[in-house]
Simulated assay, not measured.
Amino acid sequence: MGLVTTPEERFEDVPDYDYPYERVPVTDDGAKMAYVDVEPTGEDADETFLLLHGEPSWGFLYRKMIPTLAERGRVVVPDLLGLGRSDKYTDTDEYSFHLHYDSLETLLFDELDLEEITLVCQDWGGILGLALAGHNPDRFARLVPMNTGVPDGTQRMSEDWHEFADFVERVDELPIGMLIQNATATELSEEVIAAYEAPFHTEESKAGARIFPRLIPTSPDDPGADHMAAAKERLSEWEKPAFVLFSDSDPITGNARDPIRDLIPTASDQPDIWIEDAMHFLQEDAGEEIAEEVVDFVDRTS
């Protein structure tokens, strides 16, 4: 087993994301998960926002949203193991669905003891975050799923997802910056692309990014499928506010939008809104707009 930490100097030139961060052990072998914990900046700002990213991105993806949300409350942004400033295994076999679920649960509940959470989640952040909400509903106040799903092995994966999964598995050198750019409508600057590539100082450190697609349950017999099925059942009885907010140009997870909106009973109580001219990484394309939508959602459900 190899466990590595990205050298800090790799992050020196990351733009607009200079928040202090912490790293805490979240596994039996001591792997550390990094997180940003931004204090509220506004008066009477008593909300707790949890922002969960997917792959191969990291908390940097939410930099455009944090200032607006911080005016309303605390903002917690973890980096999943294998990504961002969190530790990385160099062997794909070390990663599993339950590693990601258990480590995130350890950080959020055992270490940070978060409660009354407004969850804002995308991609794998949604898979894990919605599962956590389903299994721990008392910890959550609201849900904002974005470009994600609740895969229990019975769902249909898009052709674009299959092509993506095949590509990251077979390519010799995983082009992180290219993957982000190809799933973003905005033309990214060299500085921003470099920030997405910063967490990966060696090709071996990309093992987690490579294996993430294959950890999604695509059969009811896959690891994690039962866990997701149980969460899905509980989400079908969800009574707290939920606001499904997808982009209009995401070929990877766009087909999951209606199923998730139909699954969560309270989702239909919220406006039927699409984020226009945005692709899979909608936080990059329309982060400020999304943050305003989230604040409006909080206002009308408080």
Score class of each variant (00 low, 15 high):
residue 5 T to V: 12
residue 6 T to Q: 08
residue 6 T to P: 07
residue 12 E to W: 11
residue 18 D to F: 02
residue 24 V to D: 01
residue 32 K to R: 15
residue 35 Y to G: 03
residue 35 Y to M: 03
residue 36 V to A: 12
residue 37 D to I: 09
residue 43 E to N: 12
residue 47 E to A: 14
residue 51 L to Q: 01
residue 63 R to V: 07
residue 65 M to Y: 04
residue 68 T to I: 14
residue 69 L to S: 03
residue 73 G to I: 10
residue 80 L to P: 01
residue 86 S to C: 08
residue 91 D to Q: 12
residue 97 F to G: 00
residue 99 L to P: 01
residue 99 L to Q: 01
residue 105 E to N: 15
residue 109 F to S: 02
residue 114 L to P: 11
residue 116 E to C: 05
residue 120 V to A: 05
residue 125 G to Y: 03
residue 129 G to W: 00
residue 140 F to I: 02
residue 143 L to E: 01
residue 147 N to S: 10
residue 155 Q to I: 12
residue 157 M to F: 15
residue 165 A to G: 05
residue 167 F to Y: 15
residue 169 E to I: 07
residue 173 E to R: 15
residue 174 L to H: 08
residue 177 G to Q: 08
residue 178 M to C: 00
residue 178 M to V: 11
residue 179 L to H: 05
residue 180 I to M: 12
residue 180 I to E: 00
residue 189 S to W: 09
residue 193 I to T: 15
residue 194 A to G: 10
residue 203 E to R: 10
residue 204 E to D: 15
residue 215 L to P: 06
residue 219 S to W: 02
residue 234 R to H: 11
residue 237 E to M: 12
residue 241 P to W: 09
residue 245 L to G: 01
residue 249 S to M: 13
residue 253 T to C: 08
residue 254 G to M: 12
residue 255 N to F: 08
residue 256 A to I: 00
residue 256 A to D: 09
residue 258 D to F: 08
residue 261 R to W: 05
residue 264 I to Q: 01
residue 265 P to D: 07
residue 266 T to L: 11
residue 272 D to V: 06
residue 272 D to E: 13
residue 277 D to E: 15
residue 278 A to E: 06
residue 285 D to C: 10
residue 288 E to T: 15
residue 291 A to P: 11
residue 291 A to N: 05
residue 293 E to R: 14
residue 296 D to I: 03
residue 297 F to M: 06
